[in-house]
């Protein structure tokens, strides 16, 4: 069972403090949404959690500091889908998804039958099998996002951290993406996703973390966290709760009088 934890985690980028003293513990079986306005430090927080940025405080993977673990060990435990992933070579979709197996390969060995099966499973889950032989750089933005999600799923790591996995997906695929991530979590994994759609986060996540200005201002189950009062404070919008379980619907912007 994988756990990810932050203990008083702070990150400074070029002297500016972007994440400030964030602490939490995330356990397997949870689908965790990370919310917050633009520039709140969401991406920086998860990069620090992965050990990709120098941070003060501690980021812990299964109780051990990520910074002290070999990169290959972390890579087998946490799959990472970066935001706006760039692709530097025109690989075929199949070849690209297979990159997800790199952490598992012994030096100078080829993909085993088990690796190929994992690649096929990931492509089936993300519903990109029909794109297998297309060139990844020539796909539409949404198709590409799904292929990159398949790439992250192919790692079959106990934990998956996805930075805005829904960006550029159409409504149907947004729903499919959320169902897929939730199924991964409820199948025993830990899924952490940076999200902007509050309604989807409220419907699918087991827990949401809300960041403002690098600080963790709320942490808990969506119905207790995503209240109109909090959304007013965090996003400066009016919201109404609709349905059961309650889902926030944004009605209008608060214009600050300055």
């Amino acid at each position: 069972m994988v756990t990810l934890a932050a203990e008083q985690l702070s990150v400074a980028l070029r002297g500016r403090e972007v994440v400030r003293g964030v602490s939490f513990t995330l356990d397997a079986g949870q689908f965790v949404g990370v919310l917050g306005p633009n520039g709140a430090g969401k991406s920086t927080l998860i990069r620090a959690l992965l050990g990709l940025l120098p941070a003060s405080g501690r980021a812990l993977l299964n109780g051990q500091p990520v910074a002290a673990l070999p990169r290959a060990a972390t890579a087998r435990q946490i799959a990472y889908l970066p935001q706006g992933q760039a692709l530097h070579w025109p690989l075929s979709v199949e070849r690209l998804v297979a990159l997800g197996r790199l952490p598992h390969l012994a030096p100078f060995s080829r993909l085993s039958a088990a690796d190929e099966a994992a690649v096929a499973r990931a492509m089936r889950l993300a519903e990109v099998e029909h794109l297998a032989h297309r060139t990844a750089t020539e796909l539409s933005g949404g198709e590409r996002a799904r292929v990159l999600l398949a790439r992250a799923l192919a790692v079959e790591a106990p934990a998956l951290i996805a930075d805005e996995p829904l960006a550029s997906l159409d409504p149907e695929h947004q729903l499919h993406g959320m169902e897929l991530l939730r199924a991964q979590a409820h199948g025993g994994g830990l899924v952490v996703a940076v999200l902007h759609d509050l309604a989807l986060a409220a419907r699918f996540c087991d827990r949401v973390l809300v960041l403002v200005d690098g600080r963790l201002v709320a942490d808990g189950a969506p119905p207790t966290v995503l209240t109109p009062a909090l959304l007013e404070q965090v996003y400066r919008v009016h919201a109404r709760l609709i349905g059961d379980p309650p889902v926030p619907v944004i009605t209008k912007r608060i214009i600050a009088d300055r």
Binding site: L52, Y80, P82, L87, L99
Partner: peptide, 13 residues
Amino acid sequence: TLGEDGAAALGVD
């Protein structure tokens, strides 16, 4: 191919 962060997350030192 996935950039520096992507490679590091795949276990590349």
